[in-house]
Write a protein that binds this DNA or RNA. Structure first.
Lengths: 235, 235
DNA sequence: GTATCAAACTGATATTTGTCATAAATTTAG
DNA sequence: CTAAATTTATGACAAATATCAGTTTGATAC
């Protein structure tokens, strides 16, 4: 069972500045703040399941959550990892569809649940917020086109190189220069869209070539130029 | 050079009822109507190029337009075919990005160009319209997740079967029962994400198995159940 | 109608990727 | 700390898909 926490209000949330909620009026933000429920999810716990109808959205303010879909043969396809400041579940809410994927706590996750009616009211009353979400969705739609083109046209090797670059850009590096997210080989495979064994082989290929180094789950880019070249060009 | 035409106003457009523009107030629709320019594009003409910044959007009211992106090695990835009633180019406009793909007239296309400021004003002044676009974008985002999962996890054969089903659902059938859109094998390959030769081979495989029949560019589904089964399950 | 060009098809072969089996290493539970 | 479970890794092989070369067919222009 997730346990509620006792956070201060949204206006003082350190993640507000890079959240879409930053576009809400003082009153709306206050409304959200008063009606939210803060929940802690332990690593591995499901926040919501694909296919569910949820009567609210989640605002992540701690930890990393994994969003994935199940493929036709039951294999997990990782769509993205959501970080603090991000809203999760609003798309399905707005388009009135069931959740298109499952959200699971990848690390311990702290998130605020915002009830549907509060969220929809804030959309109605804040044209800036609503336009911001529209603009963000439109931008994302463009990104999906790129993703699909890459999936269709690049080799697994190229996609893997690209993924590693993307992970570093998204999660940054720790003090030792390793990419600051811990993923199993299977999860990497489920992002790139390949079999785990293939991913392992390609990863050690990149290692042999000197583009990256690994130790356990830590991945460190040792030759960014090389990796960039591998990610874009034909083998 | 595209030639302007002299259409009646948007309020009387036969495609209005299934267009997002149907959510505009009478005044806004009138504003759009007065400021649009109707253009005819001959088959093969480019409506806009990927990477361009366009200062308006297109409302298609005749013909079919092909939207595609170029992959890293210059190969075309078809994103979708747009039909009458659809708006094209509004995503890039709203997110203020360059066009994420190119739009080309697949048949002769008649389209109205709506200037950026008129479109953005109508968004600002019509919360229903703007929410409708948001909802549609959110729905589409969910669809992209499915597309990516399929691309990652299904074989080319399965994706081809699925594409044929999708094409029939989208474009319907002519009097002879064939799917009502004419595509080259290369275009089919560029939708599925495979080489043209592979596509040809898989197509004749489906033919041999009795799932479809073809004559020239006409494709006819002869065994919908079989094709559905092929599209979903492992080989 | 014939020449020309693009599209459709076929075969041979290379490459990539997946699958299965199994072993080694690492993590987790108790 | 030890046992069990999971993750990582490797080899051998099968299947899927791409590539290249060439032929056939069909459409288009003159």
């Amino acid at each position: 069972m997730p346990t509620p926490t006792h956070p201060s209000d949204c206006a003082h949330c350190p993640h507000l500045s890079h959240s879409h909620l930053n576009n809400l009026s003082t009153e709306s933000l206050d409304d959200v703040s008063k009606n939210r429920t803060c929940i802690v999810f332990k690593k591995g716990q499901t926040i919501y399941h694909e296919g569910m109808r949820v009567n609210g959205i989640y605002c992540i303010h701690g930890g990393i959550a994994k969003l994935f879909k199940l493929g036709p043969k039951g294999k997990e396809q990782i769509i993205k990892f959501a970080q603090p400041g991000e809203l999760a579940g609003y798309r399905a809410m707005i388009s009135n569809d069931p959740m298109s994927g499952s959200l699971v706590a990848h690390t311990e996750v702290r998130a605020c649940f915002i009830p549907k009616d509060v969220f929809l009211a804030s959309l109605r009353e804040n044209p800036t917020f609503s336009f911001e979400l529209l603009a963000a969705s439109c931008h994302e739609l463009g990104e999906w086109g790129k993703i699909v083109t890459n999936l269709s046209q690049k080799s697994v090797r190229e996609r893997l190189a690209e993924l590693i670059l993307l992970l570093q850009a998204t999660f940054g590096t720790d003090d030792e220069g390793s990419i600051d997210i811990s993923l199993t080989r299977e999860e990497l495979a489920n992002m790139v869209g390949t079999a785990t064994e293939s991913l392992i082989r390609l990863l050690s290929e990149l290692k042999k070539e000197g583009a990256i180094s690994t130790s356990g789950k830590r991945i460190c880019i040792t030759n960014m130029n090389l990796l960039t070249r591998i990610s874009e060009l034909a083998h």
